[in-house]
Measured scan of single mutants.
Amino acid sequence: GPGLTDLFKTEKAAVKKMAKAIMADPSKADDVYQKWADKGYTLTQLSDFLKSKTRGKYDRVYNGYMTYR
C-alpha cells in the first residue's frame, strides 16, 4: 500500500487545494475548517501542510483555523 510519505504528499496536496479555495472564496472557510477539525488536524500539522516558498502566503488560512478551533 501507499507509504506514509505518499500519504503525507496526498494530504498536503488536498490541504493546499482547500486553502486556495478559501483564499479564492472566504465563504468556504468554515466548511473547510470543519473538515480539517473532523480529521483532527493540529495547527502544527496544518503549518507543515501549508509550507510555501512564498512567506506568509497561507497565513490567513492558518490564522482562520486557529480562531475556528
Results as ranks from 00 to 15, higher is better:
44 T>P: 09
21 A>T: 09
31 D>W: 11
24 A>G: 07
17 K>F: 08
21 A>G: 05
60 R>N: 11
54 T>I: 11
31 D>S: 12
41 Y>W: 04
63 N>Y: 15
63 N>V: 13
58 Y>L: 03
30 D>F: 12
25 D>H: 05
67 T>I: 15
2 P>F: 04
50 L>M: 03
66 M>L: 13
4 L>V: 14
51 K>P: 04
42 T>W: 02
55 R>F: 09
22 I>F: 01
50 L>P: 00
29 A>I: 02
3 G>P: 12
32 V>P: 01
12 K>M: 14
15 V>K: 01
33 Y>I: 01
10 T>A: 14
22 I>D: 00
46 L>N: 00
36 W>K: 00
49 F>C: 04
4 L>S: 12
30 D>W: 12
17 K>R: 13
46 L>Y: 01
50 L>D: 00
64 G>N: 04
1 G>V: 13
67 T>Q: 15
57 K>D: 05
45 Q>T: 05
68 Y>R: 02
36 W>S: 00
63 N>S: 10
66 M>G: 05
17 K>V: 07
22 I>H: 00
23 M>G: 02
64 G>Q: 03
21 A>K: 08
10 T>K: 15
31 D>Q: 11
10 T>E: 13
2 P>L: 11
25 D>K: 03
10 T>F: 09
2 P>N: 13
20 K>C: 07
48 D>F: 15
47 S>W: 13
48 D>Y: 15
16 K>D: 02
19 A>T: 02
8 F>H: 11
59 D>N: 08
46 L>T: 02
26 P>H: 06
43 L>I: 07
2 P>E: 12
15 V>Y: 01
55 R>M: 10
34 Q>E: 09
6 D>A: 08
36 W>L: 02
55 R>K: 14
27 S>C: 13
3 G>I: 13
53 K>P: 07
34 Q>K: 14
39 K>G: 03
14 A>L: 14
52 S>G: 10
41 Y>F: 06
61 V>R: 00
49 F>S: 02
38 D>A: 13
6 D>M: 05
60 R>M: 13
39 K>A: 13
58 Y>H: 02
23 M>P: 00
69 R>H: 06
63 N>A: 14
39 K>S: 09
37 A>C: 13
64 G>C: 04
6 D>Q: 09
47 S>P: 01
13 A>F: 06
22 I>V: 12
38 D>Q: 13
28 K>V: 14
51 K>H: 08
23 M>T: 03
18 M>T: 03
33 Y>Q: 01
52 S>C: 09
59 D>E: 11
1 G>I: 10
64 G>A: 04
24 A>C: 13
43 L>F: 07
35 K>R: 10
58 Y>V: 02
5 T>M: 09
60 R>T: 13
5 T>H: 11
64 G>E: 06
17 K>G: 07
62 Y>I: 15
32 V>M: 06
12 K>I: 06
39 K>C: 11
10 T>S: 13
29 A>F: 02
18 M>A: 13
60 R>F: 14
19 A>I: 03
47 S>V: 09
64 G>P: 00
18 M>N: 06
36 W>F: 03
16 K>M: 09
55 R>C: 13
31 D>N: 08
59 D>Y: 09
55 R>P: 15
40 G>H: 05
67 T>V: 14
3 G>W: 06
18 M>E: 14
59 D>P: 02
47 S>D: 06
45 Q>A: 07
33 Y>R: 01
30 D>I: 12
28 K>P: 01
66 M>R: 12
22 I>K: 01
24 A>E: 09
41 Y>P: 00
14 A>S: 08
30 D>Q: 12
57 K>R: 07
7 L>H: 15
67 T>W: 14
61 V>M: 03
47 S>E: 09
41 Y>S: 01
